[in-house]
Amino acid sequence: MTDFQFPLPKEEYMYPGHSACPGCGEPISMRMLLKALGPDTIMNVPAGCCAVIPGVWPTYSLKIPLIDHAFECTGAVSSGIRAALDHFGKEDVTVVGWAGDGGTADIGLQSLSGAVDRGTDMLYIMYDNEAYMNTGNQCSSATPCGANTTTTPGGKSHQRTKKDVMKMMIANGIVYGASLNPAFPEDFMEKVVTAKGIRGPKFLHILSPCPSGWKFDPRNTIKIARLATETGVFPLYEYRNGETIFTKDLKNRKPLEEYLRLQGRFKHLSQADVEGMQRVLDESIQKLLKEE
């Protein structure tokens, strides 16, 4: 055994030269995902950053087939791809629907629900940058309470809690669900490999920090992602056979403030606001721990 172990498989399924902003979380997760899945994968993407990042015709940044389509139909297109592959005896090819939080929690929710209901054997991934980032940071139903976006200027107008798409999908009938964070590559890879091995509709929720929308120095993407889990804002868990298991400790948490203060989208929050948010977070985690 060598001293120098790669933290991830060496094989690359992504080319450099793609169009993501510097420090974007999306390609980090995409790169890890494809390393875990390997080349027998066909992906479909709707509108969003994910449609821009892979490059401009005739260039293309991934080494797997990718099918583009309109905003609200990721689940439906995955169903169609799956059906055709099955018809041609290609059951071993993994179908991945990769969509943002707007494309999943808002405009694509019906189509996703339909695909889960149909029992489509797919890996549906919501890479969550918590707003409509491709159009320039507008509030989505996955935007957290208090965050500044261009349609919730000042952030205070946005007092709703983040839509819990995973809970909806569990009720809808997924066979596997998990939250993934690129700051924890081992956990990330394991969950993707597990999901790949299960037939049926799977839903993965990936946290995807966005330097330009969340307003932080692009060098801190992974640091902020890590803090999201360490503070309990983005718990890492796995859902299977009716049970949810947390895969990273939730009991010993860092203060929420460490996460919030690195991001310009929360800079308007007063100390009292932050304390209030900490209380809400603590309560919700107590509830989660009881459910486990």
Binding site: Q5, P7, C24, I28
Partner: peptide, 20 residues
Amino acid sequence: RCYHCWAFCPDVSVIVEEEG
């Protein structure tokens, strides 16, 4: 040579020719 730089690079721009 922990290669965290390689693992987290969004731009596939950290090159490690061989382990070590």
